[in-house]
Write a protein that binds this DNA or RNA. Structure first.
Lengths: 200, 200
DNA sequence: ACTAACTGCGACATCAACGTAGCACTTAAC
DNA sequence: GTTAAGTGCTACGTTGATGTCGCAGTTAGT
């Protein structure tokens, strides 16, 4: 495959994400335009609309897997893992709003990775919810809400954190732990040993 | 308008909810079939696809308003109001899965009604989240998750409540309060005076 | 420089959904 | 029972998206 062909493929996928995020039923021509490519070229790469969408799903899944590997969910302290996970998935969700809505983008591997964090949080006594599946669902649902929150929302300001992304992360972690029956007072022990004495 | 015409209109709306909940892009013919009506008849009632969807949205909004009125959000104790609200909106969401996804179905009236509950919960000191809008968002997002939970899920069983709907309601209320920074220990005071002594 | 790959452009065929119209038949309302 | 409203059925025209083809021009790789 020639180098420029690879480039256009990438640009098509990029454009497809953008366009489909805005309107999932957008015609292929709009995607081709956004990619700066003729519709015919798009068809040359992806035989059908379905094939294009499959490629988007596969692409996100791939990034999920590699991001999850970097997060080292199994070894890091549970709260740290949760925080990293929030930042990681947050990023992916924002950059792949369309693909993130595809069921096929989340393979069993990824699910297992997410579930592991909540199993570990429960084992550490940081949440009361015992079912990791439930934890994962709440995690994703709340992530969606936090991501959709308008920039200057009072709830974000209330965290006392200036940086937008940090504020969202903090809000998300706090809300997830609360929803799963965690003790709000412990939310600040970011990575401290589970049985440590309260600070200050 | 003749009585039988009114009946078909109702059946069309009913069928539209069912079919569109399963596939939002379903052709009108499938809706007509499900309603036991010719496609032409559907067109006679609703000049276009858009008109049909508008009608669905209006229908749900109408039910929202009347249900909200019965819930007496302003007068009931906040926790009772929250619980009633959960049951009410739960019902509507299940029976209107498609319309519930339409932004137009939720008029400012309804939003204000929902927000009121969370403002009152905050005033009563039952949650720390000060922004009612945030409360409403969390409420709806979690409602969705609770509704999607499969019948025999461990998280439902863990509530110790046999009745399916009651168990879901309990889980939802508990999760919402936790997510908004409420004290889990107070979740059982269903409608007890805010400053009362803890029971048993 | 030469070749093969890649691309844009325009034309074409196909298809599914939409919306309209006419006509014969059934049914509610009085 | 009469009448007008409502309905099913079929056919038709239109539109927008999809996928294919061939050709001429451009670009990467050697």
């Amino acid at each position: 495959m020639r180098a420029d062909a690879e480039r256009s493929t990438a640009r098509i996928l990029e454009a497809a994400e953008d366009v489909l995020a805005d309107d999932a039923a957008a015609p292929l021509e709009r995607i081709a335009d956004a990619a700066g490519v003729a519709r015919a070229t798009l068809h040359r790469r992806f035989s059908s609309r379905g094939a294009l969408i499959d490629a988007l799903a596969a692409r996100l899944n791939e990034r999920y897997v590699s991001a999850l590997a970097e997060t080292r969910v199994e070894s890091a302290p549970p709260l740290v893992a949760l925080r990293r996970l929030t930042e990681t998935v947050f990023d992916l969700k924002l950059g792949h709003r369309f693909a993130a809505s595809l069921p096929a983008a989340v393979t069993p591997d990824v699910l297992a990775g997410l579930d592991l964090v909540f199993a570990r949080l429960h084992d550490a006594g940081m949440i009361t919810a015992a079912d990791p599946t439930w934890g994962r669902r709440i995690f994703l649902a709340l992530l969606h809400e936090v991501a959709d929150l308008p920039a200057g929302a009072p709830t974000l300001a209330a965290t006392g954190i200036d940086d937008e992304i940090d504020a969202r992360t903090e809000l998300h972690v706090r809300t997830v732990l609360g929803a799963l029956g965690g003790d709000p007072a412990r939310n600040d022990e970011r990575g401290a040993p589970e049985t440590g004495t309260p600070r200050s």
